[in-house]
């Protein structure tokens, strides 16, 4: 293994096999990243690039003072707080139930995964018709007396984000459930047997064996959820105007970026919003990791 010829041949193969990623990284990731920083210092319209003007940190100052930018950040946070908690509980609960059964498991797994593979476009059309004031959901709620009359939720000031969060939990719990289920199957059964001998009940086993053992999966799901959720676009683009309805209640940072870049042709400002959003996402991911890892140690 240590002979010189062997090492150099493996090195050659190593770079050869890595080439697809090295090329993608150079052309489509690092170059645009640098370009993005450059754009953020410019006032530029992509159709007339020769008229670009250097504005220094002007775009950043403008963004930090822009109430629409802050509203869009608030909106996704509001949405994610509900979505992450709700979909986590549903996914974990169903994974735990599925692990208990021997017969029919693959049927339920297949069914629960269907919303995940459905396109967001189709899902949002479903939502529009299911949740409109005359649709089945609101009809049911009125019959139960939970609401007095149909609500035009897309025009309201605070409802769009919770409604989308609940619907997205329907759409995405399946993939989280599959990941948790994989983790549950990997847990050594002896742990449960030992706990059962000690007289631990079902809840006790869930909280002191299943959950701690699932930590890698939970961390993965929460991280991916946060990174994806903060970049919500299609959901709001389908059912709202480019600025998120009358109260901007459905404006997300990505839709704002899209509106700035392609509706107002302010590419420099749009790139700045993208960079700031990336900073916000990094900070949140970092905080989430710190919190979850500390909990695990105690």
């Amino acid at each position: 293994m240590i002979s010189g010829r062997k090492i150099s041949s493996d090195t050659w193969w190593g770079y050869f096999f890595s080439l697809p990623f090295i090329l993608t990284f150079a052309i489509f990731i690092s170059y645009p990243l640098i370009l993005s920083v450059k754009l953020s210092f410019l006032d530029i319209n992509i159709l007339q690039p020769e008229k670009a003007r250097f504005v220094g940190i002007g775009n950043y100052v403008e963004a930090l003072k822009d109430p629409l930018f802050w509203r869009s950040i608030f909106n996704v946070l509001y949405n994610q707080a509900i979505f992450i908690a709700l979909s986590f509980v549903i996914a974990l609960f169903l994974a735990v139930l599925l692990k208990e059964i021997r017969w029919g498991g693959s049927f339920f797994r297949t069914v629960y995964f269907l919303p995940v593979i459905t396109s967001i476009t189709v899902a949002m059309i479903m939502l529009e018709y299911l949740a409109n004031p005359a649709g089945p959901i609101q009809t049911l709620l009125v019959q139960f007396g939970w609401i007095r009359e149909g609500v035009f939720w897309t025009f309201s000031e605070w409802l769009p984000m919770p409604v989308l969060a609940v619907f997205n939990s329907w759409k995405w719990f399946g993939i989280q459930m599959i990941i948790f289920l994989g983790g549950l199957y990997a847990i050594n059964p002896e742990l449960y047997e030992a706990a059962a001998i000690d007289g631990a009940g079902w809840w006790r086993r869930l909280f002191s064996i299943s959950l701690p053992q699932l930590k890698p999966q939970i961390l993965f799901v929460l991280t991916v959820n946060l990174i994806n959720g903060m970049q919500m676009f299609t959901e709001v683009f389908m059912n709202f105007d480019l600025y998120g309805g009358p109260y901007h209640a459905a404006l997300t940072p990505v839709m704002y970026l899209y509106a700035l870049g392609f509706d107002k042709n302010e590419m420099g400002y749009a790139a700045t919003i993208g960079l700031l959003l990336a900073v916000v996402i990094s900070i949140l991911t970092f905080v989430q990791w710190k919190l979850l890892n500390r909990k695990g140690e105690s």
Binding site: F28, I29, L33, L39, P253, V254, L257, G261, G274, L277
Partner: peptide
């Protein structure tokens, strides 16, 4: 975030 790369 893939969005960072969208505009550039």
């Amino acid at each position: 975030p893939s969005i960072l790369l969208l505009i550039p």
